[in-house]
Design a protein around this nucleic acid. Structure first.
Lengths: 102, 102
DNA sequence: CGGAATCCAAGAAGATACTG
DNA sequence: CAGTATCTTCTTGGATTCCG
């Protein structure tokens, strides 16, 4: 398997549109694609689908498929994903502090 | 002034190509554009220039211009930028751990 | 040397339609 | 409902040139 640098994690998992929003919604318990689509403003199903695929690829979220009709799928944060979100919040706080000082 | 969400910091300051590499080089003491251009593989002067401009805009780095001939310019990490880099390293470690478990 | 302007190629994202 | 494929549009990055 290829060596994945952290730079790649930032570029592919955090740098694109909606990513942080998607992760936050999943953390809040919104785990099905249909719900996520409605919960993130402006995001289409196609883009959501691509994002989720990538997040699974990088081990940020985990996917569970239930063999039902109609099909049901759920995404949850991996341990790595949970820590990532904590770190995002940390940056959030830092950023606000930095802006206050100006 | 507009409200800058942390999402934007990730998308604009960390998510694009070369950003993490540039920050790391600055941290290592490479502070002049000409040097940075050589230090980051594949990056052109134009792109570097755009990145530095944005990093200043978001308060991640600070710019100092010396009125000399030829002109000299230096970029340094702000406090926010330093913390950001620490956090990047943290994600780096997390990411490696997450990969080992698989 | 630093950086802005221009032009072009490549990649990301929006809109729609279609399959299991 | 979830996910893929296609097509178009917009944004990003690469190459080059010019100015202070």
């Amino acid at each position: 398997m290829s060596e994945i640098d952290v730079t790649e994690v930032f570029e592919k998992c955090l740098g694109c549109r909606y990513m942080v929003a998607i992760l936050r919604r999943i953390e809040q318990g919104i785990q099905r694609p249909g719900q996520l689509e409605k919960a993130v403003d402006g995001m289409t199903a196609k883009v959501l689908s691509e994002r989720l695929k990538r997040l699974v690829e990088y081990g940020v979220v985990e996917k569970t498929s239930y063999s039902e009709i109609p099909p049901r799928v759920e995404y949850t944060l991996s341990t790595f994903g949970q820590r990532l979100l904590e770190i995002i919040d940390e940056v959030d706080i830092l950023h606000k502090e930095a802006r206050l000082k100006k």
